[in-house]
Simulated scan of single mutants.
Amino acid sequence: MRRIFSALAFAILASTLCPLPADAGDWFDWQWYGLTGPCDNKCAIMVFGGKFVETPMEDIFLRGDLSPFNWEYGDSGFIGFSASRTVASFWRERFAIETELGVGKRFGSMHESETWAALFLRYRDFPWNDYLYTTVAVSTGLNYASGISDEERARAGNDRGDRILHYLAPEITFASPQDKSKELVIRLHHRSGAYGLVSDADGGIQYLTVGLRFRF
């Protein structure tokens, strides 16, 4: 699993920082948009919030417990804000690579603040998109917390936790095919040590969140 995370992070980072030439191949069809310049519908902001999920991510994705109705929830909430930009696309724009910066605040039983920087790989070519425009995305990045909560310390596996952890945020979005600029976003906002890749504090915390993203 550690090798998978390493390969994914390296591949996305390398392809973003070292864009391929436009004639890299019709099947790949790489398009590099860059980090600066006019947005042209490639920029976005999002406001989102949700509830602390106690069910481990391994149970959710590796053991098939994908239904949020079966998860266990804690007494903490989260609200966040992010800004993102599409920097590249490939395979006839089926896939997109996006950068994101975000800040957030926990409340309830936890009260720390968070900030993160991440790269997202997004797939956006589902067969029903003419009826309900849908995308899915997953991230790799770093998340910094202003403190280490008792909950996170208990999950760390090293009795102390870590303020800097890996940021993994799988999400699914829905929008009207007639107006893709407004998206309903369901995201699992998750930070952990990524099986030792980022930190020896293996476990972290996560929130099931719902948000609105505006593209411009």
Rank of each mutant, 00 (worst) to 15 (best):
A14K: 12
F28A: 06
V53C: 01
G108A: 10
D130N: 13
W116C: 08
W128L: 04
G37T: 05
K105Q: 13
I164Y: 07
F10K: 01
L121W: 00
G141L: 09
S146Q: 04
A201Q: 12
I97W: 04
P38F: 06
G196F: 13
F78T: 03
D26I: 02
F81P: 02
G141Q: 04
Q178H: 02
A11Q: 00
I79N: 02
L184A: 14
M46Y: 05
V185D: 12
V136E: 04
V53F: 00
Y207I: 10
S84H: 02
A118D: 03
Y33R: 09
A83R: 04
H111P: 03
D26T: 11
K180W: 01
R85T: 00
A7V: 13
V198F: 05
L62Y: 14
Y73W: 01
F81N: 01
G37L: 06
D59R: 13
G203T: 09
D130P: 11
H189T: 14
D59Y: 07
Y133P: 05
E171Q: 12
R191M: 14
E152G: 07
Q31R: 15
G80Y: 00
P68Q: 09
Q31H: 15
F95S: 10
D59P: 07
W91A: 07
L119V: 07
F48K: 15
A154S: 15
W30L: 05
Q206G: 10
W128K: 02
D200K: 15
E183Y: 01
R3I: 04
L188M: 15
E98D: 09
L13R: 08
G203P: 11
A7I: 09
L13I: 11
A22Y: 13
R2Y: 10
F126R: 08
F10R: 00
A169I: 06
D202F: 11
R3S: 14
E152A: 02
R163Q: 12
L66S: 11
A9P: 00
L20D: 05
D75A: 08
P56I: 00
W116L: 02
C18S: 11
M57L: 10
G193H: 11
Y207M: 10
A22V: 10
S199E: 09
E93G: 14
F174C: 04
S84L: 04
D29Q: 06
N158E: 06
S139H: 09
W116E: 05
C18F: 15
V198K: 02
P56R: 00
F107V: 05
G108I: 11
Y144S: 06
W71S: 06
T99K: 10
F174Q: 07
L197N: 15
R92Q: 08
F28Y: 03
M1W: 14
Y133K: 13
G74H: 05
L132H: 11
R160M: 02
A154Y: 12
G157S: 03
A154M: 08
E183M: 05
R94L: 01
T36R: 09
V47K: 11
P177S: 10
T115K: 07
F90K: 15
R187L: 02
N143H: 01
R122W: 06
L142P: 09
G104N: 00
W32P: 01
A201V: 06
A14S: 09
E171D: 10
N158H: 12
R213E: 02
A156S: 15
D26G: 12
M1R: 15
M110Y: 04
S176C: 08
E112A: 00
R2S: 07
A169G: 15
M1S: 15
S89L: 03
G104F: 00
Q206P: 08
M110K: 14
A117G: 15
A175S: 12
M57K: 10
